[in-house]
């Protein structure tokens, strides 16, 4: 390139780096990492809560109270329950299965044969038109079977409360992190604006429209938000992957479990895009407000 020919690529009107940019990049990346983890926890909380509710609302337990002809009554009850249209499935917990359930606590072979064990039928309800507790009771009474039907209402209420708390808590944490991210970007834009006051003044006095000056900062902070967001999301993906590996992909009955499935990946991809958008918008609004304050 000759010395008398200008550099063909027009540079950015803003200096490429300022000393405020490095720490800001890492602060945004860390916030996005936390926001991604929080979003995945929120999603897991919603999925778990939905599963808990479906499990509890979609099932009832029938305990046969008759002590005479128990085997006959059990077979009769199973038959009656299967015949009900609102019942999707029936699983009988006879003595052997009941013993198996107790073995983890009492030890194998430690359950005496004369120990009275409850005879239970687990009833899965048809999710579209579930049978009611009253319908099941009426059906069993009609078959001359004395039984207690538990629709898990007591557990359901507690589970609903726990699920709602988990959902509200995780949503609140996510909202706080998103607000923090916006506040940090706004604060950083103001610092950046102060550091680049000479550029803003020169452009302003050269006749640049406010939107042109704001556009310079918008692009810069949008790009930084995207890069920092990508880093934060990548770190979150690594953390979740490591957590999955450590738990060997296992699941817990009650605790929400991270899953990096399609929706999880979607959330991780969305995070940098939203960060870029929020960074660009915050920068734009901050610069426009700052320029308006001058007059």
């Amino acid at each position: 390139m000759s010395a008398n020919v200008p550099d063909p690529t027009p540079p950015s009107m803003l200096p490429l780096r300022s000393k405020e940019d490095g720490p800001l990049f890492f602060v945004i990346a860390i916030i996005i990492f936390l926001a991604c983890i929080s979003a995945l926890i929120t999603r897991a909380a919603f999925v778990s809560a939905a599963n808990w509710r479906a499990d509890l609302n979609g099932a009832m337990t029938v305990q046969i109270k008759d002590t005479k002809d128990r085997t006959v009554k059990l077979a009769r009850a199973e038959e009656l329950l299967r015949a009900l249209p609102g019942v999707a499935g029936v699983s009988v917990y006879n003595r052997d299965r009941a013993k198996a359930l107790l073995e983890p606590w009492l030890g194998k072979g430690n359950i005496p044969d004369d120990l009275p064990l409850p005879v239970i039928i687990a009833v899965s309800l048809n999710p579209k038109a579930p049978a009611s507790k009253a319908e099941i009771e009426i059906s069993l009474r009609a078959g001359d079977i004395r039984a207690e039907v538990d629709d898990h209402r007591r557990w359901s209420a507690e589970m609903n409360n726990a699920a709602s708390f988990l959902q509200v808590f995780s949503l609140a944490a996510l909202s706080l992190l998103i607000s923090a991210s916006i506040a940090v970007t706004g604060f950083a834009t103001r610092a950046s604006l102060a550091a680049r006051r000479d550029v803003v003044n020169t452009l302003h006095l050269a006749g640049a429209f406010d939107s042109y000056i704001a556009g310079q900062f918008e692009r810069r902070f949008g790009q930084m938000g995207l890069r920092a967001g990508l880093m934060g999301a990548a770190l979150a993906a690594l953390a979740v992957g490591a957590a999955q590996l450590l738990s060997s992909g296992g699941s817990s009955l009650l605790l929400p479990v991270f899953r990096l499935d399609l929706v999880g990946f979607g959330l991780l991809i969305l995070a940098p895009v939203l960060t870029a958008f929020s960074g660009a918008l915050t920068a734009r609004l901050t610069v426009l407000a700052n320029l308006r304050e001058r007059e």
Binding site: P10, P11, P15, T202, L203, A206, Y212
Partner: peptide
């Protein structure tokens, strides 16, 4: 002067034109 240190001489001179689109 108010020249921008991160811009070349050419870009500094062209600034009013560039800022005007």
């Amino acid at each position: 002067f108010r020249l921008l240190d991160h811009l070349s001489v050419f870009e500094n001179i062209a600034l009013p034109l560039r800022a005007s689109g």
